[in-house]
Deep mutational scan, measured.
Amino acid sequence: NQASVVANQLIPINTALALVMMRSEVVTPVGIPAEDIPRLVSMQVNRAVPLGTTLMPDMVKGYA
């Protein structure tokens, strides 16, 4: 199964993503693939992302 990017902490709106904020986990539904974690670093989220939430492409500015 494909691992997705999951929030490792609460990520406030407009926060630039850092490695420590993300982990990979096999979840349903599938979100952003875990292999894209390096690409996500320094991109901003466009909403608050609670701990344990799967990151979806529409949550990250400039990802989709």
Rank of each mutant, 00 (worst) to 15 (best):
R23N: 07
L51Y: 15
T53D: 09
I32M: 03
A7H: 01
M59V: 08
P50Y: 09
M21P: 01
T53R: 14
I13V: 15
V5N: 01
N14P: 00
T53G: 10
L17I: 10
G62A: 08
L40P: 02
V45A: 04
L19F: 12
S24G: 13
T15L: 04
G62K: 07
N8C: 04
T53N: 10
I13H: 09
M43V: 04
T53K: 09
A7C: 05
N46Y: 08
I11M: 03
K61L: 12
Q2V: 15
M22Q: 00
S24E: 11
M21G: 03
A64C: 06
A16I: 15
V5F: 02
N46P: 02
P12L: 09
L51E: 15
T53E: 10
T53I: 08
N1P: 15
N1E: 11
V49R: 03
V45H: 00
L51K: 10
V30M: 12
D36R: 07
L10D: 11
V20Q: 10
V20G: 14
V5Y: 01
R47G: 05
P12K: 08
K61N: 15
N14R: 06
R39H: 13
G31S: 00
E35F: 15
A34V: 08
D58V: 08
I37D: 01
V27I: 06
V49T: 04
P33I: 06
V26N: 13
E35R: 12
L40Q: 01
V41F: 04
V5T: 07
E25H: 08
V41A: 05
Y63C: 04
A3I: 08
R23K: 13
V45G: 03
A34D: 07
L40G: 01
N1T: 13
S24I: 08
A3C: 06
I32C: 04
I13L: 10
P50K: 10
L10V: 11
L10N: 15
A3W: 15
M22L: 14
G31D: 01
A64G: 13
V27T: 13
Q44M: 15
V6E: 02
A48R: 14
V6P: 00
L55N: 01
T28S: 15
S24N: 06
M59T: 05
V41M: 06
L17D: 02
L55Q: 00
I32F: 02
T53W: 11
S4W: 03
V60I: 11
V60L: 07
A3R: 15
M21W: 04
A64T: 15
V5A: 10
I13M: 14
E35W: 13
A3K: 12
E25K: 15
T15C: 04
M59P: 02
I11N: 01
L17R: 00
L51A: 14
